[in-house]
């Protein structure tokens, strides 16, 4: 019964690789994207925290961060 399921009427050698390829690719892309996000978030929060002592700096900083209206052209 168990072997029957794996064999899938002789088509298992095509069906399983197709599903495995799909899921492995998706997992690889997920891990890559997540690691990149974590890295960037770290850089971002570092930049954000670096100047927390200097209040004036932080005010400027916030300005930079939020001074990007959506419809602004570049």
């Amino acid at each position: 019964m168990n072997l029957d399921f794996l064999n899938l009427g002789g088509y298992g050698q095509f069906v399983w690789p197709a599903f495995i390829f799909t899921f492995v690719s998706c997992i690889v892309l997920y891990v890559k994207t997540r690691n990149e996000l974590l890295k960037q978030e770290k850089i971002f929060s570092k930049e954000f925290n670096k100047k927390q002592s200097a209040k004036i700096e932080i005010a400027k900083h916030k300005e930079v961060l939020s001074a990007s209206p959506i419809h602004q052209t570049y």
Binding site: T33, R34, E36, L37, Q40, E47, L65, S68
Partner: peptide, 12 residues
């Protein structure tokens, strides 16, 4: 996730 990453990069 990617969009957030790209936005951070852009702002940095």
């Amino acid at each position: 996730m990617k969009y957030k990453t790209e936005t951070i990069k852009f702002k940095m």
